[in-house]
Each structure stands twice: as C-alpha cells, then as structure tokens.
Amino acid sequence: MAGPSTLALGGFAFEAYGFSYEERSRRLDARWASIPLAGAADARQWTGGTGRTETIRGVLFPAEFGGLASLDGIAALASAGQPVPFVSIGDGNNVFGMVIIEEVEEDIGFVLADGTPMRNGYRIELAHFPGRDFTPASVLTGLAGLF
C-alpha cells in the first residue's frame, strides 16, 4: 500500500502510506557584514550566505506499511556522499535542485520479537548543492552506488 507520491529524493519517493513524511521545513541563511562608520549608523554589506537547507521529518510504521528499505537507501546515499535531485511530484512539480544528505537520524521504538520496529521516527537534513545541474540522468547516478 503506497498511495500517491508527493516528494522524491534521488530515486526514493515519499508516499502517502509506507515511506511517508509529516513535515518539511526550509531555511535560507543570508549574511550581512556590519561596517562601522564614523558619525553614522553602521553600514551593511551583503556577503552571501551559507546556503539553503531542508529538513524532512516523518514517522514510519514498518510492520504495518513498510518504508524502512527506502529510509535505509537514503542513509546509504548519505554514506556514499553522492548529490541527488530533490523534487516535488505533487502539486506544482517543483524542482528544488541538487542536494546533499547531511544527516539521517532515526528514533526506533516498539520493536517486535524479530527486530522489526513498529514505529520509526526519522529526520533527514539536506543542503543545497550549487554548481551541479539537475538532469533526469542524475536520478540514476544517485542510485548507481546502491546496486
């Protein structure tokens, strides 16, 4: 039972059921240097920024709906250090560009006798990867290290 997909990170789609997410947040840091002036308020000069980051949070119920294999695949992409495309495949079909997976955090609970978690909360931290354009082939490149 998967349901409609709303987001994709590399070759992994976030679905309504199974590998789903609860929230997504975005942060953009823009830096301004303060320049002291004699007899006036400090001037400001834009120095760029540290970039755009995204956070995806969700809860999986692997015993009931699955999704753990996709989370493990995203963790493998993070370990491989491979930039991947990040796109919205729901309303609007937005291409957010290439990202790197900086962190995958899991909170596993209610484990069954065979080791399968009944509940698995997760958080995925992404950072924009400038200088590399999104192409349809980049999805396949992101999956190459997994097989």
Rank of each mutant, 00 (worst) to 15 (best):
M1V: 15
A2M: 13
S5C: 10
T6A: 06
L7G: 04
L9H: 01
G10W: 01
G11N: 12
G11H: 11
G11V: 09
F12C: 10
A13Y: 13
A13V: 12
A13I: 08
E15A: 14
E15P: 07
Y17S: 12
E23Y: 00
E23L: 08
L28T: 04
D29T: 12
R31S: 13
R31H: 13
R31M: 09
R31K: 14
W32H: 13
W32S: 11
A33D: 12
I35M: 08
G39C: 08
G48R: 07
G49N: 02
T50R: 11
R52C: 06
R52N: 00
G58D: 01
G58W: 02
G58L: 00
V59Y: 02
F61K: 13
P62I: 03
P62A: 00
E64C: 07
E64R: 14
F65I: 02
F65M: 13
G66S: 12
G67W: 05
G67V: 01
A69S: 13
A69C: 09
S70Y: 10
S70M: 11
L71M: 06
D72G: 02
D72K: 13
I74M: 02
I74F: 02
A76R: 10
L77T: 14
A78S: 08
A78K: 10
S79F: 05
A80P: 00
A80I: 12
G81H: 13
Q82R: 13
Q82M: 15
F86I: 00
F86N: 10
F86C: 04
F86H: 04
F86D: 06
F86L: 05
V87R: 06
V87Q: 03
I89Y: 09
G92N: 09
G92F: 00
N94L: 11
N94Q: 08
V95T: 10
V99S: 08
I100V: 10
E105F: 04
E106F: 01
I108Q: 11
I108L: 13
I108K: 10
G109F: 09
P117D: 07
M118F: 05
R119E: 08
N120D: 11
Y122F: 14
E125K: 10
A127R: 08
A127N: 02
A127C: 01
H128S: 04
G131R: 08
G131P: 05
G131K: 11
G131L: 06
R132D: 09
R132W: 12
D133E: 13
P136H: 02
S138C: 08
L140D: 07
G142V: 09
L146A: 05
